[in-house]
Amino acid sequence: MPSKTPGQAPGKAIIAIVIAVLVLLALLVPPLGGDYYVHLLALVFTNVILAASLRPSLTCGQLNIGHSGFMSIGAYTSALLAKHFGLPFELSLLSGAIVAALVGVVIGYPALRLRGVYFAMVTVAFVEVIRLIAQIWVPLTRGMSGLSGVPKPNLLGITLTTKASQYYLALGLMLLILAILYKLERSRLGLIWRSIGMADPLAQSLGVNIAAHKLLAFMIGCFFAGVAGAFYAHFIRFLFPPEFGFLMATNILVYNYVGGRGHFVGAIVGAMFLSLLSEPFRGSAYETIFFSIAMLLTILFLPGGLITLPGKLAGLRSWRAASAPSPSPAG
């Protein structure tokens, strides 16, 4: 749980300064860092979008272990529309997001009536079905040969040819989406999501149509997962079905748990921390081991996630300070 008592919360000015410094640092990466970092961070930004877009559903108490399925739908939709019909990136990205959101409604409408682990099982099945469709529907997706030749992203007719410009696109998308999701979470709507997650009979008794609100939260998450997928498609320019499988879906969930679910920042911290730290193992079997260990350590030692670490350390320090003078009672 986050420590949200007014006395402990850092001032708004400090938060604004921290955000400004972080954004400034992010802006300086392309001129100062190499292509490797530009590429890596652009992918980290998509992971941040994915992690944050899982929050609306998580806040409603719905365990979605199939989020990468919606990313996959966004990626393939956008890639195919751009490749075969020459749709500009803005439109193909939007189409990918909308299709992902619509599939979210179709899956969510029946599935969200299920509780807890049953809903989670449906989402696991979903992500595998999407992966299998992408593998088997060869005429459309090229199956396991992978879909190559996805056009580079363009904005207002100008193709973003350099990695740096694509990096800025990713940064912009991430900041915009984070702002929207944060605003939603800190609103009347977010309050309703929290109420459903905490005690849904009580929310119902106050007139909340919990089925409709769970569906709306789920749909919003699917939409932004679709955006992340569409960007990914035009950035990597090659789509391979297993990339969006169960493993990726669990990673998105693990970002949230390791970062901490008690506050919006948790998803961002978790996605950044884990995707940067797991980079050396990317694609190898060690990646799974790394994520499993991170999850285990979190559950055992930091159930509230990394965002509770500063509070715990401060608590430890004050405990030490309090217990330090005690060994001299004789005086």
């Binding site: 749980m1 009347r188 929290r194 109420s195 005690a199 009580l202 909340v208």
Partner: peptide, 14 residues
């Protein structure tokens, strides 16, 4: 039965 993690005001807002 309350939303324990919310403030009293937020509870009534719901």
């Amino acid at each position: 039965t309350l939303f324990h993690d919310m403030t009293a005001l937020e509870n009534v807002l719901l």
